[in-house]
Nucleic acid binder design. Structure first.
Lengths: 221, 221
DNA sequence: TGACTAACGAACCAGTTCGTACATAACTTG
DNA sequence: CAAGTTATGTACGAACTGGTTCGTTAGTCA
C-alpha cells in the first residue's frame, strides 16, 4: 500500500503535488485503519507527513473527503488483484478452490483494508454510497465466478443453488471474519485465527467448505 | 435489549438507582452502536436519558468504562441465549443445523450487538481484554457443540477435521458478515443480504454449507 | 423526627479538534 | 526574465468534548 518513494532530496520546500498527495493518502490509510473515522486525527495524519495539515485541505477538502479517497484507493487495489485472476483454464472445482485461496490470501495480506471496510460499515457505507468512483466499479471477479459456476452446474459437478454474488459472500465472510474479528475472538475463545501456524489449516478449511457445499449430494432433497 | 419500563410517574426528582443505571446502559448501547466509540458523545447519551451526564460519571466512571459495561451486558445476552440451547436430543446433523439456525437468528435479531463487536475489534478488543467479567465467560455453546461433533464423528457421519471453536468461527463468520457488512456489500454488489425475502435463502444456505462441509465424502483424500 | 447518606442536577472548565486566513516560495510560460 | 499560477507553511480561532465542582434533594434509619 505504501506507494511513496523517497526522492532523497535535501529539505527545504519541494514542490511535488503527486508525492505529497500520495504520502497523505498513505498516512491517512494507516491512521484511519488504526483509530477509525472519528478516532483518527487530522493533525496526527499531517504530523506523520512531510507536509502540513494545510495540504490535506488543499488537496482533499476535508476529513470526510480524505476518508473517501482512502477507501477509493483501497478498493482499487482489490479490483486490480481480481483482474489478474486467471482461473478459467482450470476445471470448475480447482478454479473455485483457487478463487477461494486468492480471496483468503488477499484478506490476510491487507488487514488495514479489512479495518477500513469495518469502519465504513459502522458509518452505513455513507462514503461509498456518495462516491461516484466506487459506484462504478463492480467486481471483475464476479463475471469469472459466474462462468465457472455455470460450467460446474452444466457438467453436473455443482449442485448448489447459488449465484456468483452469494458465493462471493460465502467466501468473503470466512476470510473477513478471521481477520476482522480476530481480537474479540482471541480474547473470548483463546484462539488466534490469524496465527501463522494455523494459516494452512484455515485456508484448506475454506476451500473444503466451499467445494463441499457446491458439490454436495442433493439427491435426498 | 431495552430493559427499562416506564414507571409512569410524574416528573420531579425520583430516586431509582437501578432504573437510572439501566437507562444509561440502554441509551449508551444504541449510541455507541450508532456512531462507534469515538463517534459517540457522552453529552448526547446523557441528553437521551432522563438523567444527566453527571450520573454517567457517578455510576460508570467515564466513557471508557461505560463502553465496557455496554459490551459486558451485550455479551451476557448471548451467553444466556446459548444456555437455553437445547439440541442434545437431536441427531448430530439436525443438532448442528439447529445450532447454525439459532446463531443465524441471534445475529439477525441483534444488529446493535454486531456493530459493538465490530467497534470493539477496531479497538483491538482492548475493553474485552481489560474486563474481568468478559474474561470469565467462555461460551456455554462450545461444550455442547463439542459433544455433538464427537457423536457425529463416532457414528461416521462427520468426516471433517474441526473442533467446536473452528465450527463456531465458520458459522459465526457467515452470520456476522451478512449483518455487519450489509452496507458496503449492498453498495458495491447491489444486493441486500438482510432483505426479508432473502432471509430463508441465506438461512438454508448456511445450514447446507455447514452440513455439507462436516459430512463431505473424504474417501478421495 | 432529625441527622445521615445515596442519588441527583446545573454550570463550568481545560484541553482538543477541524478548519481557515494570510503570507510566501517554487515552478511555468509568454 | 517577468508575470502568473500552483503548491506550501504558519498561526490562529470557534466550537466541541470529556470530565469535574459544587450544591441540593429524596429516602431511611436510629
Amino acid at each position: 500500500m505504501t506507494s511513496v518513494e523517497e526522492p532523497a532530496r535535501p529539505n527545504g520546500r519541494i514542490r511535488d503535488a503527486a508525492r505529497t498527495k500520495a504520502e497523505i493518502l498513505d498516512v491517512a490509510t494507516t491512521e484511519f485503519a488504526r483509530a477509525g473515522y472519528d478516532g483518527a486525527r487530522v493533525d496526527e495524519i499531517a504530523a506523520r507527513t512531510r507536509t502540513t495539515k494545510r495540504m490535506i485541505y488543499y488537496y482533499f477538502g476535508g476529513k470526510e473527503q480524505l476518508f473517501t479517497a482512502v477507501l477509493e484507493r483501497a478498493y482499487s487495489v482489490i479490483r486490480q488483484a481480481e483482474q489478474e485472476l486467471d482461473v478459467e483454464h482450470l476445471d470448475p472445482v480447482a478454479a473455485i478452490r483457487r478463487l477461494a485461496e486468492v480471496t483468503f490470501d488477499h484478506h490476510e495480506a491487507h488487514p488495514d483494508f479489512i479495518r477500513l471496510v469495518s469502519i465504513e460499515n459502522i458509518h452505513d457505507a455513507a462514503h461509498i454510497t456518495a462516491s461516484e468512483e466506487l459506484g462504478r466499479i463492480g467486481s471483475p471477479a464476479l463475471e469469472v465466478t459466474g462462468r465457472i459456476l455455470r460450467a460446474g452446474r452444466e457438467s453436473g459437478l455443482f449442485t448448489a443453488d447459488v449465484d456468483a454474488v452469494d458465493l462471493h459472500a460465502l467466501i468473503s465472510s470466512f476470510c473477513f471474519f478471521r481477520v476482522a474479528n480476530r481480537h474479540t475472538f482471541g480474547a473470548l475463545f483463546g484462539r488466534d485465527l490469524t496465527a501463522a501456524e494455523q494459516r494452512e489449516h484455515y485456508r484448506t478449511m475454506l476451500g473444503d467448505m466451499v467445494i463441499a457445499y457446491l458439490t454436495a449430494d442433493r439427491s435426498a432433497d
